[in-house]
Amino acid sequence: MNRPDLRSNFAYPLLDVTRLLRKHFDRRAEPLGLTRAQWRAIKVIHRQPGISQKALAELLEMEPIPVGRVIDRLQQAGFVERRADPADRRVWRLHTLDKAHGVLDDMEVIAAGLRDDALAGVNDAELAACIDVLERMKQNLLALEETPSKNS
């Protein structure tokens, strides 16, 4: 395969892989009746019991109002509950309920199967090299947030 300008085109396959992972995950998870946003919210709340809605919105990179709607639906379905923060009446703390644990297990099985399918034919050395490069790119981009831009 001819790759005339790797530096100009590296992001396209990265974006395609991300899009395809989301698409296939959504298809596989459809029978569980949860959106990707709902599953991500349950997963974060499970890992960080008592997280506030504001902190959840930041972690999910979503606006507070849509996150509130996601939480409303999850609460109505019996997956999470809101508890008042004892130190601040304006803050709600989020906790998963027992029903969420089974769904989390199912979603992890789906995610593991998709990872296996996506990585078919990729050996450990190739994967390690890929992860190393992505981590270095991530660090480069994070460093941009800490320094003034060249255009300002």
Rank of each mutant, 00 (worst) to 15 (best):
K43G: 00
R69N: 08
I71A: 14
P86V: 05
W92Y: 10
H46G: 11
D85W: 06
P66K: 07
R47T: 02
R93T: 03
V80S: 07
R115A: 10
A143L: 12
R136N: 03
L134F: 09
L59N: 11
G78Y: 01
I131A: 11
V109C: 10
K54D: 13
Q139S: 09
R83W: 10
M107S: 02
I51K: 00
D105V: 12
L34N: 03
P66R: 06
Q38M: 10
R83Y: 07
C130E: 07
E63D: 14
D117T: 12
A87D: 13
L97F: 05
A37P: 00
G33H: 11
A129I: 09
G121Q: 09
L127M: 08
L119N: 05
V103D: 10
E145I: 00
L34G: 03
A120F: 03
G102N: 12
V80M: 07
L74Q: 06
P31M: 00
L104Q: 12
A37Q: 11
L34E: 06
R136H: 08
H46K: 13
I131P: 05
V44N: 03
V70C: 08
L56N: 04
R115K: 14
V80K: 06
P64W: 14
D88S: 09
R40K: 11
I110Q: 04
E58R: 10
C130I: 07
A125G: 00
T35G: 12
E81M: 13
P66Y: 07
F79T: 02
V67L: 09
L56Q: 03
L74E: 07
R115H: 12
N140C: 02
G78T: 00
P49N: 07
A84S: 14
R90H: 15
D106Q: 04
D132Q: 14
R90Q: 15
R47Y: 02
